[in-house]
Nucleic acid binder design. Sequence first.
DNA 1: TTAATATGTAATATATTTTTGACATAATGT
DNA 2: ACATTATGTCAAAAATATATTACATATTAA
Lengths: 74, 74
Amino acid sequence: MNELGELTNQLSVFRAKEGYSQAEVAKRIGVSRQTIISLEKNKYSPSLKLAFELAYLFDTGIEDIFQYNLKGED
Amino acid sequence: MNELGELTNQLSVFRAKEGYSQAEVAKRIGVSRQTIISLEKNKYSPSLKLAFELAYLFDTGIEDIFQYNLKGED
DNA sequence: TTAATATGTAATATATTTTTGACATAATGT
DNA sequence: ACATTATGTCAAAAATATATTACATATTAA
């Protein structure tokens, strides 16, 4: 796949805002804690479904949590 | 993972709007044609990166192309 | 000091997405 | 009739996401 951009996320910010631990988010979404840790740290690309679940949990839009920063743009 | 909703998409609509064939979209995004066909037909959950690439190609937002329809809601 | 909670690492296993290649059909144009 | 283009199916392999388990460290509270 083309790699036009770099994926980043504000998960930890939303998490802190709600006072959720990683474990709590994992439990609510129904994924493992590792998945949340990896997302926050390694910034890998989750499934779109997981992204939607997170957006739903934090009552916001996918693009508020995840950003696709195009390379060579400022 | 929780399955709070069902993933659907409007890919074929955006594709038609731009007059792109599935092969052309695949080529532009840098994925296989199968990936586009499967997305349109089987409605599996793509990676968030792929969703962003498609949104970027069609110059729109992820949530304009993909919908997460919560079960038990109308 | 001990227990509990939160975050992190690492290795391996499983599930899902994506690729590849081969072939089928319908529609369009020459 | 033949070539070309678009869409589709199928099966197997490769790549990536996610789960699982075990352990490590730091922080806070009893």
